[in-house]
Design a protein around this nucleic acid. Structure first.
Lengths: 222, 222
DNA sequence: TGAACCCTTGCGGAAAACCGCAAGGGTTTG
DNA sequence: CAAACCCTTGCGGTTTTCCGCAAGGGTTCA
């Protein structure tokens, strides 16, 4: 079994549960951190001491706590960790039901396991740890279903993503070109923004912008 | 200390955590259920056997599992339970950050404790149980803040609520009068809908409808 | 009862969103 | 290389949203 595991999870009721579970599975070193930055530092430090972690179990969303956090979400943590220790096994354990994020994590960041918090999560986390220890992947049924069904909303580039967020903040289409420029993007004209929003509506199957906001938010883009 | 406690919580990692906590506090009877209906039945049964529960710790939102559930949310469970056993102590333990629901539960349904899942929840649940056992209330800081700050979004009547939902579905302002009529509401004119939406924007401090959608959804109205 | 208040509604005009058409430029692919 | 394709953009016009002003009706309260 794994010898050294790191848990990044800010809900103490949950991280206590996982911790207990791992200890019961005879994992000698289980560390719990409640912030992404701490998780990264911990992994980095262990690596520098030649006592690297073998498994990271992380949530996706963390509540804001300390100021000046560099990493604020599990996605960022995973991306950062992959750079310094690519072979580290990673299991995501979250309540996100957001198709976009799940797809990105599984396909781009190549996490080894992905389970959703729920009725059977204690059982599933056990299965996931066992599978990952044997160099296999483990994705819970719900995750598999979301991955398969989520073939629609795919190719949002950063501009699209920002446009959604600007709209969510109450910025009008007309103001979006300047806002994009402020964020170091090329200068787009209003008509282009209109076209992009049109496409976003098609992509999300939304009737108008208010409807688009709801659907994009449901899928975790906002 | 309490002798008999019921936990209604469908996330097994969390309910295991609370259960363990209560056992450690020498509560002899701790029952865990994962569905609202089961919680209600359990309370009803215990009452009929003259061995009533003394404390209910419940989540607000439950994932759908079994079909034909009568009660599907913690709010409904609390309301139903209050009717058959008004003196039962109730602590809500949830991740809802929705002002509307918190206010309703605290002020209308008069729950005894309310804490949000988070970094300090194991500590807070202990405090809450102790306080409630001494016939006091316990509301976590965040809840208190939400209660105080939530003095704005108050008087949404059913029309307002429906208008928000119609907009979220992509129905235009112009179509709303007929939609309201279909739902057995009085016939409003377009100008009235406009006025109401204007007020909603003021209430939620939203710049326009897309922005309103996001804020209303964040607060649980959509 | 009358002043104050709020909700509804109409009118009219400004602003924003929406969208078809088509041209120009860049990339892909056979 | 040329056809096919996609993205960007302008133009022009329609639809929808937004909002100030003001009138009418209902309720509350001193």
């Amino acid at each position: 079994m794994f010898q050294k595991v790191l848990i990044a999870e800010d809900y103490s009721m949950i991280n206590k549960g996982i911790e207990k579970h791992l200890k019961a599975s005879d994992v000698p070193v289980v560390t719990v951190v409640e912030y992404c930055d701490k998780a990264f530092q911990e992994i980095q430090f262990a690596l520098s001491q030649n006592t690297p972690y073998q498994l990271l179990i992380t949530d996706l969303s963390f509540e804001e706590g300390l100021l000046n956090q560099k990493l604020t979400s599990g996605e960022e943590l995973v991306a950062a960790v992959k750079k310094i220790q690519p072979e580290l096994k990673i299991i995501v354990f979250t309540m996100e039901q957001r198709i976009g994020k799940i797809k990105q994590l599984v396909e781009v960041l190549q996490v080894d396991g992905f389970i959703l918090k729920g009725r059977k999560d204690t059982y599933q986390i056990k299965k996931a740890i066992d599978a990952v220890y044997q160099n296999k992947n483990y994705f819970s049924d719900t995750v598999m279903r979301l991955l398969r069904s989520g073939d629609t909303v795919e190719d949002l580039d950063e501009e699209d993503h920002l446009i959604l967020q600007f709209l969510a903040e109450g910025i009008t289409q007309k103001e979006i070109p300047e806002q994009l420029e402020k964020n170091n993007f090329p200068t787009y004209q209003l008509r282009t923004i209109e076209s992009r929003i049109s496409k976003l509506k098609l992509l999300f199957d939304a009737k108008n912008i208010p409807n688009l906001m709801i659907k994009a938010k449901d899928d975790g883009w906002i």
